[in-house]
Simulated scan of single mutants.
Amino acid sequence: MKKKVYAARLGVTALALTLVTTCLMGSTLARYVTEVTGSASATVAKWSFKASEAEGSTNFTDIDLGRTAYDSSTIKADVIAPGTSGSFDIVIDGTGSEVGIDYEIKLEAATDTTFPNDMVFSTEAITEAKPGKSFSEFINTAIEGSVNQSDVAEAMKETVTIYWAWDFGKNDTATANDNDYAGKSWEIGITVTGKQTTPTETPASAS
């Protein structure tokens, strides 16, 4: 009787081992599997923007409308008066920038600074055909421009020249004149803003 029990147990054990072996063999069936890893990279463009009164300068503190040379026998050096004219430069410098630059220049008279109505400003040389605008009119429109991206340093510099002229009033009299401006100090606030030019895609070449 015991032999039959042992035989039955051995038969069950053998069946169980057969099932386990079958499962293991089924799970070891293989196929080629390859995993490739990589990465994406990008270099962010450099940004550089400066604006100054002249190349090599770092700010606007040196701008002086009175530095235009006139004969010392007619007007003292470094001052302006009716009948004088001149200009000053604002240098836009994007050297080192790897993107194009859109710039905007705004001028504003400082507190307690007023200009004569017959004093005019312009971004072009002032002539009879191009008489310029009074300061209050001139500052209503921002001076805008762009500097295209270039690896050539000089190509990323642009000079904006602002011309001024204080003409003799055609109807000046003893009671209507520019005497109120004599001895005054004028100050113009200058704000220059540079922004990255919006990138544009290169059109696909025709096949």
Rank of each mutant, 00 (worst) to 15 (best):
F49T: 07
F49D: 07
K50D: 10
S52V: 02
A54V: 01
E55F: 11
G56W: 10
G56H: 11
S57I: 00
S57L: 06
S57M: 07
N59T: 06
T61E: 12
I63E: 03
I63L: 13
D64L: 15
D64C: 05
D64G: 02
D64F: 01
G66F: 07
Y70Q: 08
D71P: 00
D71E: 13
D71Q: 06
S73K: 08
I75K: 10
I75R: 10
K76Y: 09
K76W: 03
D78V: 04
V79T: 13
P82L: 10
G83C: 08
G86M: 06
S87Q: 14
S87F: 11
I90H: 05
I90G: 03
I92L: 10
I92G: 02
D93T: 05
G94K: 10
G96Y: 11
G96A: 14
G100I: 08
D102E: 12
D102N: 13
I105W: 03
K106D: 15
E108C: 12
A109G: 12
T111Q: 13
D112K: 12
D112T: 09
T114H: 04
F115I: 15
P116E: 11
M119S: 03
M119H: 06
F121P: 05
T123P: 02
I126P: 03
T127E: 05
A129F: 09
K130H: 12
K130M: 06
K130S: 14
G132Y: 06
F135T: 07
N140I: 02
N140L: 14
A142E: 14
E144C: 03
E144H: 01
V147I: 15
N148R: 04
Q149Y: 14
S150G: 09
D151K: 15
V152Q: 14
A153G: 00
A153W: 00
A155Q: 12
M156L: 06
M156P: 01
E158S: 13
I162W: 02
W164I: 04
W164H: 08
W164N: 01
A165G: 00
W166M: 08
D167K: 14
G169A: 05
G169I: 00
K170G: 08
K170A: 10
K170P: 02
K170C: 01
D172T: 14
D172E: 15
T175P: 00
N179Y: 06
Y181P: 02
G183E: 05
G183A: 05
K184G: 02
E187L: 10
E187G: 06
I190G: 03
I190Q: 04
T191S: 13
V192E: 09
T193K: 13
